[in-house]
Write a protein that binds this DNA or RNA. Sequence first.
DNA 1: AAAAAGTGGTCAATCAAGTTGACTATATTT
DNA 2: AAATATAGTCAACTTGATTGACCACTTTTT
Lengths: 157, 157
Amino acid sequence: MTQEVLSELDLTSLLSLSFSTSINELHDRLSELGFGDIRPVHGFMFKCITPNGSTGVELAEYLGITKQAVSKMVDYLEKCGYVIRKDHPTDKRGKIIVLTERGWLVVKAKEKILTEIEQRWIEKIGTQRLQMLKEDLTILVYEGNEDRLPTRLRPVW
Amino acid sequence: MTQEVLSELDLTSLLSLSFSTSINELHDRLSELGFGDIRPVHGFMFKCITPNGSTGVELAEYLGITKQAVSKMVDYLEKCGYVIRKDHPTDKRGKIIVLTERGWLVVKAKEKILTEIEQRWIEKIGTQRLQMLKEDLTILVYEGNEDRLPTRLRPVW
DNA sequence: AAAAAGTGGTCAATCAAGTTGACTATATTT
DNA sequence: AAATATAGTCAACTTGATTGACCACTTTTT
């Protein structure tokens, strides 16, 4: 696929390809660091867990999946050593899911890699253009979801 | 989720959200037109099928999935009336998958809706900024995949 | 020309990640 | 105190992918 082909793409396809380009690079590099058992959805989960932990229901709402699915994902992440369930301080029914030390390692690694990717993009298109890109995407996401917040505004792919 | 929250997001999350914003709107509107049985992946499939049809192996390569998975998807789309399998003109092992009349209807509808979405975005950020956005994304996709084309450059989400 | 290796497509079994429904324990409302 | 709602888990099922086996046909090798 050449640049000519790419430039004929509609914006939606371009967004899809640029997202997968960047998420693929992120997870390739996490794999090299020994975090090969982390999948993209876990990144969004960690976003909701940090910095103070999160309940299962909150995660389900944030990710747009059922609490049962969250429960399975937490089983997996707990088995892999990234999170643990703690008793909720005030609600005896609830648990709060918090990062372990290893969990924090992967979050820090993720941030570092994303910053590096963004830095490389700045080298390609310049600080100003990257700033504009981010502003414009923010506007598009905001305007495109205006009337149906918050249920439809989730990281889904 | 407010615009403030959005503006704190890293570029990767922003790309994810803007892609899902636009793909969600596309499929909501296709549903309203009676094409509720079409899912996002089918759009990328149609891209490869048009205009001259495509073999299963080509589709599998393009989409980055196995030929068995393609075969099942084609079963589904054939059942729904969007495509048909024809004998390959020169290779008696092969089939070519082509769009039916209904298949063309959905492709045309998709293009119309994507153009309208893009038009609305022009109203928000202007022709110039949209043009820059597309150019920049094209550069990012191209540069980000330079050394591993074509296997990693696929519409995946 | 015959034999060997490769390719396009499908069938079957399995896996992964989600779903719905049922249930327990605890909280909240009436 | 009783009724209702909520947080989390277990089990069964669905969906969309996978791997492996296979047939029919094509291409390459000998």
